[in-house]
Design a protein around this nucleic acid. Structure first.
Lengths: 152, 152
DNA sequence: TTAGGTGCAAACGTTTTGCAACTTG
DNA sequence: CAAGTTGCAAAACGTTTGCACCTAA
């Protein structure tokens, strides 16, 4: 755990607990384990990848639990679900202080995250012009990364 | 068929025939039917919707054929595959002279297409800055459309 | 004590594949 | 006639669900 660029995990826990309390949901051992593992992840995890990590600590967890827990996190806005072309759903933590889009290399599958507030502003303009009240967006750029360009 | 805003279907056929010739693929009755129905579509078709349309003309076509034909069209760059959140893949024609993104109402599922060259320019800037050679992108804006806002 | 959660396995819906029969070039 | 294509049905895939048992509050 470095000292820089830490996100506020405590805030996520608080938001989750709040949501669970409001909905009469319970804080179980499995749920805590799955959410903590998820909050600690830095990637775009598939259910299976997350399950693998969780099972290191508690091998008896079934994957229905992971599905259900991620659905919960999605519902309370703490996880985003992404689809990058292969058949699987991937999830990433919805940090309160961060929004980013994705730049994906179609050769090596590397995924770079970026933020561009100019683009976001233009998106809001477009939506407004067409009468929409914008809630979220998804921007994915596909191309060949510098490394793969050099290899060719 | 109106006189305005016609796309060049002939060009699509030429590109397809070229691709098939280069890869030793054959022009069958089914393939022609599926591709023509697809080229004539204006929407984001699911496999099932396309199959329904095709079966009006030729009821004996199986859906594996439609899947395989759309994979072919995808491979030669004449069709784009889209995922809008429900489980199904949707396809749209990759017109050479057109590019657009999507604005999706999360209430009524209405999909509006738009183009914004300013956004596209910024996308290219971002990609360039990160060393990528951009080949395509996907931008989806989600929100509530004017009609659904009024209803609430 | 009871509403909610878990783990398993079966069910689900979409997509892919193996194969024998058929077509295209 | 050789190689590609089709239609069917079965398999595969990721995901969801029903249920009996368990557990947090």
């Amino acid at each position: 755990m470095g000292a820089t660029a830490e996100h506020d995990v405590e805030q996520l826990r608080a938001r989750l607990n709040d949501y669970m309390a409001r909905h009469g949901l319970r804080s179980t051992e499995q749920r805590r384990l799955v959410t903590e593992m998820f909050f600690a992840s830095r990637d775009h995890l598939s259910i299976e990848e997350l399950l693998d990590r969780v099972r290191i600590e508690e091998p008896r967890i079934g994957y229905a639990t992971v599905y259900r827990t991620l659905k919960l996190l999605k519902d309370c806005g703490l996880a985003f679900e992404r689809h990058f072309g292969d058949g699987v759903s991937r999830y990433e933590v919805a940090w309160a202080d961060e929004h980013h889009d994705h730049l994906i290399c179609t050769e090596c599958e590397k995924i770079i995250e970026f933020e561009d507030s100019d683009i976001e502003e233009l998106q809001h303009n477009v939506a407004q012009r067409l009468g929409f009240n914008l809630t979220r967006h998804k921007l994915e750029l596909y191309g060949i990364c510098a490394g793969c360009q050099a290899k060719e």
